[in-house]
Design a protein around this nucleic acid. Sequence first.
DNA 1: GCCGTTTTCGGCCCGACTGTTTTCAGTCG
Length: 589
Amino acid sequence: MKPSNMKPSNEAIVAALRQLVAYTKLEDGQSQSFRTRAYDKAIDAINAAPNDVADMSLSELKAIEGVGDSTARKIIEFVERGSISKIDRLKQRFPPTMLELMKIPGLGPKTVVALQDHLGVVDLAGLRRAIANEQLRTLPGLGKKSEEKIAHSIELLGIHSDETRTPIFDAMRIATRVVNDLSRCDAVSQIAYAGSLRRLSETIGDIDILTTTDDPETVLETFTSLAGVTTIMGSGDTKASIVIDDAIQVDLRVVSDAEFGAALLYFTGSKGHNIELRQRALGRGLTLNEYSLSQIDDGAVVAAATEESIYEALGLPWITPELREGIGELTIAEAGLLPKPVVPKMLRGDLHVHTDWSGDGRSTLDEMLQAVTDRGLEYVAITDHGEDLAMNGLSRERVREQQAAIDAARKRYPLLTVFHGAELNIGPDGTVDYDPEFLEVFEFTVASIHSHFDLDPDAQTARLIAAVENPAVNVIGHPSGRKIGARPAIRFDVEAVAEAAADAGTALEINSHLQRLDLSATNLRTVLGIEGLMFAISTDAHHTSELDNITWGTAQARKGGVPIERVVNSLPIREYMAWMAQKRGRSEG
DNA sequence: GCCGTTTTCGGCCCGACTGTTTTCAGTCG
């Protein structure tokens, strides 16, 4: 590869290190050598790094926990040359197609290397031929059954591979359905989803579900015969794996009630977090597995029923699942420096809500105000689209009509403060709908990007900063414009925008929709240090049911490490109004 | 390959399932 002027992104560096892991597995002939585990840990650390790793010096890289001298040098080599010599060397020995073979479920490095050594098979076509010729069963350790299993796995290829991780929005829908369906089984006592879904990862490999029961057989049988099951990957006494809707693998694990906490902790992960917890346990004469935290010497159970009790026994506060990435959160937690997790009941208002006054809203103004009241909120901003969004937006005349409608509605909801707002549309040049005089009609606005997603980074940054500095704008809605799995984020300098926002008294939105989760957790961590920057956790609800998406917005705030003090819609109404007034006061002065 | 309230060498988390073994290896999470 030729060196390029563009420095590689953290994602590109991680991709290179993942290649390194795969080739090293082949070289070591095992899936878990200490070397590959070390690389894996470095990958986790870089994934979590808020800044560009490509800009770092050797000593800065080595200062990252989990990155040592060897990996740091490989990263620098990749940044400077565009490739890593160890990978180049291993490619000579193992053709890249062998990496594809390792993605087939059931085929690990040992078997893939055996295929090359004994049969000269290095790619999928060769593997298919070998299976057709019944050659696989001649390999040491393999038999007829293994050959058939691998043949079946090839048909399922893709379901398990890295490229087909499912966006969290889709995975959550399936998980919710499976949890609901399985809950109807009388033998099920407790049930919860765990894994990367519970950690609020943006994309999900497998869905992990945990149940407690005293009748595992019935639960497992019910699980493998659920509606939508297209393949049963395996089933034992305590766990089973299925593929549902031909779309995603779902793993079920069954334990007893007394073991629920230990099992939930174990299956929530991440793997790195679990390893650090177990190491910590060992240091205290304890051992941790999916059943309990126990004494090593006599096996006496110390804690098992709840996650809280296990963390406590390890000298730690409970750590919110979204932060369990094995990237130093244990150290921060032990020092008492983790922010108190943001939860929905800490929020007093929702600052981004649509009604059927704009074309895409599906609930009436009254339905929304009633639903907001029912959820115990003290204030809400009705933010239907501005006129620039041709399909959905409100003309000036309609804005005036809505103002009257909201005035009338306020009498019906005396306990609720209703702001007549708008979701303005940020044009390619950073200007918004209407004109400055007319914008004074609104008591509050959120401004968002809905088009021109492919401008160059400088233009996008300037565009967002112009909106941030607009005196009529209070919040920037879904700042990156991404839709997970469907549309990439716009390219922009999030730090520059956030600094401008802090200066201007404009908040950045944490959009709660599972397709958005925008700002991303990575972006949040990047801008968290900017003094005075505030966030608004908003639902962007287009229907009353979507007000419950606040669950995900708060989870995203937790994942980004945002403390509640930085969330404007947690403020009591008077303080919140003072925050809004400060913006207008500042712009006039 | 990483790392240091046992440390710069010698350790490194834990268990289920499957198929091939008759006590275990490979794979997976």
